[in-house]
């Protein structure tokens, strides 16, 4: 994590060129209003077409997830076996799946499951992983290494297997078991990033200064360290949101994620697999919807990372 204060004087993409022009230009800029890391990042983001496009796409997806009925009047669960695997028909632009359900309606209604799981898991993982990572990084010592070993333990088990084993222990399936399973495997990477970030910020002079002024541990952590250490976590969280959606779809595809009664892209892809040879279109539409959704979050994460860490551009 680069020192945030250097961020404002590093607008140019190349260090050597920057070093040349900056002596003066930063001076003249700082005569105006000094920009913080966040306002600087926001300034960059608004001008980044990747960010604008992905953010609009995500807003659209959230709209679809919350109000699917705005986009289709067909009930995704009203199916007619006679229409099974038929191609497109008037009013049914994507055709029908094996059960004779309208693929377009199922694609629209499937957004809710993915977006819900993605957002719930990400919020949970940032809270849990962020808390554990911050504590481990801040206190170091025995508590720190204990927590580090704990994250190591979780890393040692392949993510997908871990989630599967966890889910297989439940006699029932619903959205909460899936969210819990993904949170279980997702928190360690956030914790690890948070820990590293807190450790690097902990060393900085302004923290030493705050300590010298007699600020309490909690105050130092909350007021001085976290605001400066959170940036990498936000980047990882945005990118991970996409990965969590993939994981949910994978679990549903394997038949142990969301229950069949929930319309989900992963579940629909699983159903469509059986008729891949005869009706590839049934598999295509939910796959494309899923991929675009994940891509939107990935692009957003990429744009946010570029804005928060201009070095890598």
């Amino acid at each position: 994590m680069p020192d945030p204060s250097s961020k404002t004087v590093m607008p140019s993409q190349d260090a050597s060129a920057a070093a040349l022009t900056l002596g003066a230009s930063s001076e003249s800029k700082s005569l105006g209003k000094p920009r913080s890391l966040w306002s600087d990042a926001w300034h960059d983001l608004r001008r980044n077409p990747t960010f604008v496009i992905s953010a609009l796409l995500i807003l659209f997806l959230i709209l679809v997830a919350v109000f699917p009925s705005l986009f289709t009047s067909t009930d995704p669960k009203r199916c007619d076996l006679i229409m099974g695997n038929n191609g497109r028909a008037p009013g049914h632009p994507f055709g029908f799946d094996r059960q004779g359900c309208d693929v377009y309606a199922r694609v629209i209604y499937g957004a809710r499951a993915s977006v819900t799981v993605g957002i719930l898991v990400t919020s949970g993982v940032v809270l849990i992983g962020g808390f554990i990572g911050a504590i481990a990084g801040f206190y170091g010592g025995a508590a720190g290494s204990l927590l580090s070993r704990l994250t190591d333990m979780f890393f040692a088990i392949p993510i997908l297997l871990f989630a599967i084993v966890f889910l297989s222990g439940f006699p029932f399936r619903n959205i909460w078991t899936v969210v819990a399973a993904i949170m279980l495997v997702g928190w360690p990477s956030v914790a690890r990033i948070m820990r590293g970030s807190v450790i690097s910020v902990k060393e900085s002079d302004f923290v030493t200064a705050a300590r010298a002024l007699g600020a309490s541990d909690m105050r130092i952590l909350a007021r001085h360290i976290l605001p400066n250490a959170i940036a990498p976590v936000i980047v990882v969280a945005t990118i991970s949101l996409g990965l969590f959606i993939v994981l949910e779809a994978t679990l549903s595809y394997l038949g142990i994620g969301l229950p069949g009664s929930t319309v989900s892209w992963g579940g629909d892809i699983n159903d469509a697999q059986a008729s891949l040879r005869t009706a590839p279109h049934v598999l295509l539409y939910p796959s494309v919807a899923l991929s675009i959704t994940v891509l939107a979050f990935m692009l957003l994460g990429d744009a946010v990372r570029d804005a928060l860490d201009p070095k890598l551009r």
């Binding site: 996409g242 892809i269 590839p280 796959s287 991929s291 994940v294 891509l295 990935m298 990429d302």
Partner: peptide, 17 residues
């Protein structure tokens, strides 16, 4: 980015198909 965004089972089906 595109590859990472497309779930592996979709990539698998596409290649298989």
């Amino acid at each position: 980015l595109l590859i990472i965004s497309i779930p592996i089972f979709v990539i698998g089906f596409l290649m298989q198909y």
